[in-house]
Design a protein around this nucleic acid. Structure first.
Lengths: 156, 156
DNA sequence: CTAATTTGGTCTCTTAACGCAACTTTATTT
DNA sequence: AAATAAAGTTGCGTTAAGAGACCAAATTAG
């Protein structure tokens, strides 16, 4: 299939997807956010083939999303930890989770109830906000400057 | 055995990725948000093979992200329009775009400057907020509902 | 009316990626 | 010294992606 690569695309979404847009990468990042750090744990939790996990971890390390740390403990043992770049995917993951919870709820399970440690209250739905902090939709935005032809500037 | 499917996964992120987590789907949704509606336009803008585009559009329609509308104009002509479910991916796409702009900026190009139509001001970075509206990170959240700390909760 | 064009696909074929399982390596525990 | 564990690597079969040719309905051109 020779999956297309967009390393040099002028679209930052395409470039982002190039780094975390494959099937497993975001799930690996997700589990890393929940505290998973070791190869075997990723493998068991995700049910991913070891060679694929190898490949994805290496790619995520190459892209600076994870860092590989030798913790020299109990034999050859490494940890894969999120970098700041990786932790910065938090809004992406949460937005995706909330979208999934809203539109594809599991029939027999309540969605994860994520709460703020400081307040104990549930977190808010992730939303796009204007400068005043009011939530806005795709219809409320336009592209300033260039990049998108004028005919495309009125959003869907 | 080809790509694993997680239709019945108890993880809403996995289920979400099952619908829009492949390489092209989110890019199609992105272009739909910028106003693209017709088959040929998607094809030309994305440089995607027609059979793949067919498949992705059909899948997005099946999943309720797009709807196919016969606008009976200039020959056999359809439009693929975002549903509410599709438009609801706006925070995901914007979060991904901002992440890409921040961490993988194009060397020779300024990122898209998205602005609010009402105020003319740039939109804010997408962030996860607690009940008070304060931004929080992955380190500030825990999973409520059981005694299992987030770090051990892999069903997420 | 007929021919060319546009739109939206389908078909075939090659190649690349996925997944499993078996094997390897290094280090640790018994 | 043998067994276990972690972290891969290799080989192989299956599947899906991608390019490009082909197809069909409606439309416009001539």
């Amino acid at each position: 299939m020779a999956r297309k690569r967009f390393d040099d695309s002028n679209c930052s979404v395409a470039r982002a997807l190039n780094q975390v847009g494959d099937w497993w990468s975001l799930l690996i990042v997700l589990h890393a956010m929940y505290g998973t750090r070791r190869f075997v744990d990723f493998q068991q939790e995700l049910g991913i083939a070891k060679n694929i996990l190898c490949d994805r971890l290496a790619r995520l390390v190459d892209n600076g999303v994870l860092k590989k740390v030798d913790v020299g403990e109990h034999g050859s043992r490494f940890e894969y930890r999120l970098t700041e770049k990786g932790r910065d995917l938090f809004p992406v993951v949460i937005a995706l989770r909330q979208w999934g919870d809203k539109w594809n709820p599991a029939p027999d399970e309540t969605p994860l109830d994520l709460r703020d440690k400081a307040t104990g209250q549930p977190i808010q739905p992730v939303q796009v906000q204007n400068a005043e902090g009011d939530p806005i939709t795709v219809r409320d935005v336009f592209v300033s400057g260039d990049g998108i032809p004028a005919s495309k500037k009125d959003s869907a």
